[in-house]
Amino acid sequence: MALLKVEAVSKYFTSPGARSEFCVFKDVSLKVKEKEFLSVLGHSGCGKSTLLNIIAGIEAASDGYAYLDGKQIIGPGLDRMVVFQNFALLPWLTVFGNIRIAVKAAYPGWDRNKIHQWVQKYVDMVGLKGAEDKRPSELSGGMRQRVGLARAFCVGPRMLLLDEPFAQIDALTRGVIQEELVRMWEDTGITIFMVTHDVDEAILLSDRILLMSPGPEARIMEEMHVDIPRPRSRTSVIEHPAYYPLRNRIIRFLSRKDEDDQTKCVNLVA
């Protein structure tokens, strides 16, 4: 059975001033299997964050339902942890404090010592040993997102929801953290739902990729399986024969703004 099920979810916004409703996406349905890594790929503004927030339970769907393990999602929960595009760390807390606040919330019965050990375990896991007492403003983007990952993993969620987690990180660091994420995903057996607009990132990380059409009224248009064996690395992936056909299909889809544009874009890719 699928761990996460999204059924015909639509989202409308009524922008102030305008009288009509604005449809971000419509009838989005998808399933994520246990331990799967699923990515949703789409243009900026097509509603990826909105969809992810609905699954996270911090935004409400206008239509349709989402289910986790058969139970309807009606609000946020510790079973689904979000890693935000802009990190969303609490700037007045240290690295340690940012992780501890999550551990304390998830395990209210634990004593100081247990909490401390647990936090330290996740600090070490994301390679932030020695930076425990730094504040987010003193960290590089890569280190900040490591804190974000540690904060998400440390509560032991069933699902990780990643909202363009590496978009604000420089390319070199991004590769390293992507590989760490895969390692943690394999070690913990967690299920991951990620939204991104980075094609290579989606191919490197995912088992399956869903393509969203540009908004408004975005929809999920296509599904692609990434048949590249793991372990993958950035270099091994591009050498695999399935890589370029897959990448070209995705890029062709994403550059297809309207019918007139289509021929031009195909030429560009070929």
Partner: peptide, 11 residues
């Protein structure tokens, strides 16, 4: 963001 974090952690 800060409020979202507190909501996600179900504080």
């Amino acid at each position: 963001d800060y409020v979202n974090v507190s909501n996600i952690l179900q504080m």
